[in-house]
């Protein structure tokens, strides 16, 4: 269960099939993979290659059809709905392409939401939320609603929400797809800083070059198979304004 003692996620012979008509579509075809604590890694590949499916299984939002996926010591395929929810609640943060903020909540309330689920005391919640909003540079927007924010700001709220409970791993599915270059780099830098400061593992699913440049490990997924897994010693980080 302790992430520091072993891989955050260990996937062996992972297969995922979806029913389609009378047959099925195979999205993942025998994935063997390990994600270690503190990694800033990304599953890279073209659309339809299975990136999101892989992230969903790691995030216990979905289950494998075959093989095993052990995340933070728990076998995803064997978890009940409640156990899966508990795993997500305590240890996994999500960032989505479309932000998926709760529209009727303020920025503060959106970030506070995971802590409410964890039944943290009010004072602890307040402190954690304000700290996280400070990290993403939205301290002045705590009362704003998502509809009053720009896309970049929404994604920063989503990052704060994913990070506020200090999860073992943050799964980011195309986090920059709806953002312009400046905002993309801004949020990626924020995530890099968080990774460095908190030691949080980040795992992306992306085909965006801007994101790929930041990754320290790139797992190339093609047609449901890992075709390349490379570690980048020094990511080619973008200079401001370029």
């Amino acid at each position: 269960m302790n992430a520091s003692n072993g891989p955050i996620a260990r996937l062996s012979g992972l297969v995922k099939r979806f029913p389609m008509g009378r047959g099925h579509f195979t999205a993942l075809r025998g994935i063997d993979l390990q994600i270690m604590p503190g990694e800033f890694t990304g599953v890279v590949g073209p659309s339809g290659s299975g990136k999101t499916t892989l992230l969903n299984i790691i995030g216990s939002l979905d289950t494998p059809s075959e093989g095993s996926a052990v995340v933070l010591g728990r076998s995803i395929g064997e978890l009940s709905h409640k156990q899966a929810a508990d795993l997500r609640n305590h240890h996994i943060g999500f960032i989505f392409q479309t932000f998926n903020l709760l529209p009727v909540y303020s920025v503060y309330e959106n970030v506070e939401f995971p802590l409410l689920l964890l039944r943290k005391p009010a004072e602890e919640r307040r402190k954690a939320v304000l700290e996280m909003l400070e990290w993403v540079g939205l301290s002045d927007k705590i009362r704003s609603r998502p509809s009053q924010l720009s896309g970049g700001e929404c994604q920063r709220v989503a990052i704060a929400r994913a990070m506020v409970k200090k999860p073992g791993i943050v799964l980011a599915d195309e986090p920059t797809a709806n953002l312009d270059a400046d905002n993309s780099h801004h949020i990626l830098k924020t995530m890099v800083r968080m990774n460095e400061n908190f030691g949080t593992t980040f795992c992306f699913a992306t085909h965006d070059e801007k994101v790929i440049r930041y990754l320290r490990r790139k797992i190339l997924l093609e047609d449901g198979r890992v075709t390349k897994d490379e570690t980048v010693k020094k990511p080619r980080l973008r200079r401001a304004g370029t």
């Binding site: 995030g59 929810a85 997500r88 479309t98 709760l102 995971p114």
Partner: peptide, 16 residues
């Protein structure tokens, strides 16, 4: 439903 999906992703159980 996106919102509800997100709430489930954040750890809400079906019962909740």
């Amino acid at each position: 439903q996106r919102e509800i999906g997100m709430q489930m992703a954040l750890g809400m159980t079906r019962g909740q």
